[in-house]
Amino acid sequence: MWSEPYLETCCRAALHRLFLSGTAGRPEADAAMKDVPCLARLVQLGCVEHRGGRFFLTAAGAARHAAEILRARG
């Protein structure tokens, strides 16, 4: 049984885009970005941190990315 909440496809995509942004992070979401709700949900789940007007992947987010996204590709 899963111990973590399910991530919708759009949220997994937002997590992957954040992973690809590396240490630069992603800019603060605005109305033009389609993944605003996903970034907010990922912050609530502790996978993403919002600081200084940017979003950054946390250690928990990196682990979740490795388990759900990288695993699916390998």
Rank of each mutant, 00 (worst) to 15 (best):
M1L: 10
W2L: 10
E4C: 02
P5V: 14
Y6G: 08
L7A: 09
C10G: 02
C11T: 15
C11W: 06
R12T: 11
R12Q: 15
R12N: 07
R12W: 12
L15V: 04
L15K: 04
H16K: 14
H16M: 09
R17K: 09
R17L: 13
L20T: 03
S21A: 15
S21F: 11
G22Y: 05
A24W: 13
R26V: 08
E28R: 09
E28D: 11
E28F: 03
E28I: 02
D30M: 03
A31V: 15
A32W: 11
K34T: 03
D35V: 08
V36Q: 12
C38H: 00
C38W: 01
C38V: 02
L39H: 04
R41L: 12
L42G: 03
V43N: 03
V43Y: 04
Q44W: 05
Q44T: 08
G46S: 06
C47P: 00
V48D: 02
E49K: 15
H50C: 06
H50N: 03
H50Q: 04
R51K: 15
R51C: 01
R51D: 06
G52H: 11
G53D: 04
F56Q: 09
T58W: 10
A60M: 12
G61L: 03
A62H: 12
A62T: 13
H65P: 00
H65A: 05
A67D: 13
E68L: 11
E68H: 02
E68A: 02
I69N: 01
I69D: 03
L70S: 13
L70M: 10
R71E: 05
R71V: 08
A72N: 09
G74P: 02
G74S: 12
